[in-house]
């Protein structure tokens, strides 16, 4: 885990530098120059931070659902701790995705909040997982707390799939990938230069490693808190 910790911090540092520092020119001649994306210009640098946080939050919620399923089938307390840790990290990262997205929306769409389907759906994801932690704290009996929160987490995971992948594509909106939109955004549309692509995927890797380290850290503290009966 030490390697992952250092590797992720190294990669994220590199991504911050290579996301912010390189100049944007019309016809890139050197490896350190980014081309202009029409309509985005300097604002596209947010891709390296907004998309990975949203990606990590989705992964974290799915992993949390998976561990809840594992808990129900095996009744091993470790999986419950892992499910809770992963959900809390997912909550943190979806908050970050909301903030970076709102900043981007301010400069591209005109205001911080536009009631775009994806903005609405991430708010409801936040509410779902806030409710998960509220539910956990409102059941006294240890075993039924673990069972019930695992069942709720599976239901929440199912509706989070509908919220992230299906609903925003069915409704019209401003975000890339909405109904009636021409493309899937600059990255998934494939119309982007090589060096942006490299930075983007390295950023995804770095944030994923960061998530793995955070999950490990939260799980270890969770085990210690359980041993100390610190609740």
């Amino acid at each position: 885990m030490k390697i992952i910790k250092y590797l992720s911090s190294l990669i994220i540092t590199l991504v911050i530098i290579s996301g912010i520092a390189p100049p944007i020119v019309e016809f890139p001649m050197h490896w350190y120059q980014y081309p202009i994306i029409p309509g985005l210009e300097d604002k596209f640098r947010n891709i390296f931070f907004h998309v990975p946080t949203a990606w990590v939050s989705t992964i974290a919620f799915l992993v949390s659902t998976y561990y809840s399923f594992k808990y129900l089938t095996s009744k091993n307390d470790l999986y419950d701790i892992k499910a809770e840790s992963s959900a809390s990290i997912g909550l943190l990262f979806s908050l970050l995705a909301t903030v970076t997205g709102a900043l981007w929306a301010k400069f591209n769409w005109g205001s911080f909040w536009n009631w775009d389907p994806r903005q609405v759906s991430i708010v409801f994801l936040l509410i779902i997982y806030f409710a998960y932690f509220l539910l956990r704290s409102s059941i006294k009996n240890e075993i039924s707390k673990n069972n019930i929160s695992a069942v709720y987490n599976i239901i929440a995971g199912i509706s989070s799939i509908f919220f992230t992948f299906i609903l925003p594509r069915m409704l019209t909106g401003l975000h890339p990938g909405a109904k009636g939109g021409k493309d899937l955004g600059p990255i998934l549309g494939g119309s982007i230069s090589g060096n942006i692509m490299v930075t983007f995927f390295v950023s995804l890797l770095g944030f994923t490693l960061f998530y793995l380290w955070l999950l490990n850290l939260r799980t270890r503290t969770g085990i210690l808190m359980k041993e100390l009966k610190y609740d």
């Binding site: 409801f124 994801l125 509410i127 779902i128 806030f130 409710a131 509220l134 539910l135 409102s138 059941i139 006294k140 019930i148 709720y152 239901i155 929440a156 509706s159 509908f162 919220f163 609903l167």
Partner: peptide, 18 residues
Amino acid sequence: AEFKGLLFPLLSFPIMLP
């Protein structure tokens, strides 16, 4: 769970929203 009256709207609204 406890606090049933408080918890139910909070849990059900986001799940029923789609």
